[in-house]
Amino acid sequence: LVRYRTISKIPQITLNFVDLKGDPFLASPTSDREIIAPKIKERTHNVTEKVTQVLSLGADVLPEYKLQAPRIHRWTILHYSPFKAVWDWLILLLVIYTAVFTPYSAAFLLKETEEGPPATECGYACQPLAVVDLIVDIMFIVDILINFRTTYVNANEEVVSHPGRIAVHYFKGWFLIDMVAAIPFDLLIFGSGSEELIGLLKTARLLRLVRVARKLDRYSEYGAAVLFLLMCTFALIAHWLACIWYAIGNMEQPHMDSRIGWLHNLGDQIGKPYNSSGLGGPSIKDKYVTALYFTFSSLTSVGFGNVSPNTNSEKIFSICVMLIGSLMYASIFGNVSAIIQRLYSGTARYHTQMLRVREFIRFHQIPNPLRQRLEEYFQHAWSYTNGIDMNAVLKGFPECLQADICLHLNRSLLQHCKPFRGATKGCLRALAMKFKTTHAPPGDTLVHAGDLLTALYFISRGSIEILRGDVVVAILGKNDIFGEPLNLYARPGKSNGDVRALTYCDLHKIHR
Results as ranks from 00 to 15, higher is better:
Ala69Asn: 13
Pro70Leu: 09
Arg71Thr: 10
Ile72Cys: 06
Ser81Glu: 06
Trp87Lys: 01
Trp89Cys: 03
Leu93Lys: 01
Leu94Phe: 04
Ile96Tyr: 01
Val100Phe: 01
Thr102Met: 08
Tyr104Val: 01
Ser105Val: 05
Glu114Arg: 15
Pro117Lys: 10
Ala119Cys: 04
Thr120Gln: 07
Val131Arg: 01
Val131His: 01
Leu134His: 05
Ile141Leu: 07
Asp143Pro: 01
Ile144Asn: 01
Leu145Gln: 01
Ile146Asn: 01
Ala155Met: 12
Asn156Val: 09
Arg165Met: 11
Arg165Lys: 14
Tyr170Gln: 01
Asp178Ala: 01
Asp178Lys: 01
Met179Pro: 01
Ala182Trp: 01
Phe185Lys: 03
Ile189Tyr: 11
Leu197Tyr: 10
Gly199Ala: 11
Leu201Trp: 01
Leu206Met: 08
Arg208Pro: 03
Ala213Pro: 06
Leu216Thr: 04
Asp217Thr: 06
Gly223Ser: 05
Leu227Ser: 01
Leu229Val: 05
Thr233Cys: 15
Ala235Lys: 01
Ile237Gly: 01
His239Leu: 01
Glu252Asp: 01
Gln253Lys: 10
Met256Ala: 14
Asp257Arg: 08
Asp268Arg: 12
Ile270Pro: 01
Gly278Ile: 01
Gly280His: 01
Pro282Glu: 01
Asp286Pro: 01
Tyr288Met: 01
Ala291Asn: 01
Ser298His: 03
Ser301Ile: 01
Val302Met: 03
Thr311Ile: 01
Ile324Tyr: 03
Ala330Val: 02
Ala330Trp: 07
Ala330Gln: 07
Ile332Arg: 03
Asn335Cys: 03
Ser337Cys: 04
Ile340Gln: 03
Gln341Tyr: 04
Tyr344Glu: 05
Tyr344Leu: 13
Arg356Asn: 13
Arg362Glu: 04
His364Cys: 04
Gln365Cys: 06
Glu376Asn: 13
Tyr377Leu: 01
Tyr377Gln: 10
Ala381Glu: 10
Tyr384Lys: 15
Asn386Ser: 05
Ala392Phe: 04
Ala392Asp: 13
Val393Gln: 03
Gly396Asn: 07
Cys400Arg: 07
Leu428Thr: 12
Ala440Lys: 03
Pro442Tyr: 01
Pro442Gly: 03
Asp444Thr: 06
Asp444Phe: 07
Leu446Gln: 01
